[in-house]
Amino acid sequence: MLDYLIKRTVQVLVVLFLALTTVFFIIRLSGDPTALFLPPDAPREQLEEFRKALGFDRPLYVQYTEFMTNAVQGDFGNSLRTREDALQTVLNRIPATFQLAFTALGLSLLIAIPIGINSAYKRNTLFDQTGVAFTVLGQALPSFWLGLILIYVFAVQFKWLPTGGGGSMIHLILPALTLAAYSVARFARFTRSTMLDVLRKDYIRTAKASGIPMYKILSVYALKNTLIPIITLVALDLGVLLGGAVIVEVVFAWPGLGRLLMQSLLNRDFPVVMAGVFLIAFIYSVINFVVDVLYAYVNPQIRYK
């Protein structure tokens, strides 16, 4: 177990290092931020002075070494715009992003797993085909479009829900639904195909031969076997939900990490972007680790000795 933990920790460090390095150089390609912080008619000398003050005049490798040295100590610098600590700025947005991502995840699992199980059990019936059609639709709709339509219907026309913003459960409903739509499709289809596979197994026949009612076979005996591969998919999707909530956060003006990153990128607020990338990569790695442990919990055959 200790070996395993050490191995996983080293993996996480490598992932973080590669993520930060890649993003550092790519973001520098987008150009110099100084021009964005000064009025368009600012004199050349003033621009140069500002650039020097921020350290952007130095060679790239010097900037990189300095950045990495500070980053290892948890210092990502201050936001170029607000002058506040970049990492702190990003951390402040985490609760909102988590709230949205986990609500969307919970919602999509709650909808998708029962649909998937029933589609598999009643395969090739009307229920199955309607279910598949709906899930394909959910997967095909782009989230910005679905988000706008939901805003139009529920916020503008019916005035039941706010158009955007954060702070309460009411504000959470539309963005969570929009974000869940895509995952529902994936989860439902995956549950269906895995369940179909499991239902053909010998041990399901044994369960039937023991006189266990079908609902119990589906909801207990087959479900636990079906969940094993789903957990992996959930992990992958949670990463997408956390990082990919950008569009949904922007559409609904949700005060989360995605929207902050989007704004910071447009402003070339490098320290905030780097802190954000670091945090997302870190969260992603931790989720993957947790999932592997969960995996062992559900599947006794791979328990770590």
């Binding site: 197994k201 010998d202 041990y203 026949r205 044994t206 369960a207 039937k208 031969a209 023991s210 006189g211 266990i212 009612p213 005996y221 636990k224 076997n225 094993i228 559900v298 599947n299 006794p300 055959q301």
Partner: peptide, 24 residues
């Protein structure tokens, strides 16, 4: 039928390796 299965009539299958549920 379900009330009979596993009760009055029961069955043993060919494949003991796969006939038991691996996660229970």
């Amino acid at each position: 039928m379900r009330k009979l299965r596993g009760n009055d009539i029961s069955m043993i299958f060919q494949e003991p390796m796969t006939s038991l549920n691996p996660v229970f």
